[in-house]
Design a protein around this nucleic acid. Structure first.
Lengths: 196, 196
DNA sequence: GTATCCATGTAACCAGTTACATGATTGC
DNA sequence: GCAATCATGTAACTGGTTACATGGATAC
């Protein structure tokens, strides 16, 4: 299965909300889902051109006196159908490179003095994750504050997306704690037990 | 902060265990941590050359009669110190592209008929995650079976690494379920409540 | 008058993947 | 004889990031 350029879908998704310029798209990304998605001008502008040639979007130059002219793209029917198809495709988030786990795999707890290093590793990792978690919780709080709709009309999808990151972070923190305990036990056991 | 080539550290980590050829390194990756790390020959061989020039590894050609000759690399002191430095650096696993969450962000639950699609999305995502989870659990089981040391001497780091993936998957599944519930409630509320 | 924002783009680069080329050996 | 494995490598490509170039408008 080939790697597919997802910038296309991000753009389609935003244009499906409303016609926008490349600049708008970038702004929207930064503002609305910076914690789990990123786009750069270097990807957006060339992709928009490509998408126009593929008939996924329509182009319209907006001439504004005074202000610089903007190129507004809108999604076509073809673009919409491609977008909805993508939306319903189950996402396989390939984690081919998880640095944290790789590091762990290289640690060797059989050697006595290494255990301290490994426990230190976990503590440091935990601190990084905790910091992220605090950040997410802060944002969750902010959203609830400035969007009273969430109370009367249920929670927003922005919050739901954020809660995935929150749930994952919490799971990771717990995993760090459990792992430290497991390594501690390993240590005490090898003292009066056997050593390979 | 610039993106750093992590292939280097993966190689250092493996060579720190024992001197190996490029081929060995690839095999080790596939065998030992395929679920969270991947390397290709296209990265390994050029990197080994570069690392030799940087003095991180030593090269030794092994001439075997009959068998094809192998180039065995071993880690140097400089390589070791760079490796341990990396090991203790807290890992910031940037999730700049979480397709699942992006999809969610584009879903609009305010429109009645969209809710069905969103719930369907969650169900499909959940199924994908569940499949992964089952896979992980199977491997965890396999490791425990063929490695009796884990019982007497505590659990291996291979299992601990795996348990991170397991914990994350479980958190994600729970998140899917909670989200579906939240959207259901949103729906019933908007029926006898207000609609924007 | 200068820093920041609006706005569009290109070029260069890096990481990582895939495909290809080569050739020897082993197992069926 | 043929497929699979051992073994090393290169070339081409894709996805994504960063830096640069340009120029007008706005805010202080």
């Amino acid at each position: 299965m080939p790697k597919i350029n997802k910038t296309k879908y991000a753009i389609l998704g935003i244009l499906n909300l409303k016609p926008s310029s490349g600049y708008d798209i970038k702004k929207y990304c930064d503002l609305s889902f910076s914690h789990y998605w990123n786009e750069n001008f270097g990807s957006i502008y060339p992709m928009l051109k490509r998408m126009e040639m593929e008939g996924l979007v329509n182009k319209k130059t907006e001439q504004n006196e005074g202000k610089p002219s903007r190129i507004i793209y809108s999604i076509t029917e073809k673009g919409k159908s491609e977008f909805y198809e993508w939306m319903l495709t189950p996402t396989e988030e390939k984690s081919t490179r998880r640095e944290r786990l790789l590091k762990l795999a290289f640690a060797n707890p059989r050697e006595e003095n290494n255990r301290e290093i490994i426990m230190e590793m976990f503590e440091r990792q935990k601190a990084v994750i905790q910091q992220k978690l605090d950040e997410y919780l802060q944002i969750e709080n902010d959203i609830a504050m400035d969007d009273p709709l969430t109370e009367t009309n249920g929670i927003s999808l922005r919050v739901i997306a954020l809660r995935c990151l929150i749930a994952e972070s919490r799971a990771q923190i717990q995993w760090c704690e459990e792992s430290v305990e497991a390594i501690k036990n390993m240590k005490s056991k090898s003292k009066n037990g056997r050593t390979s």
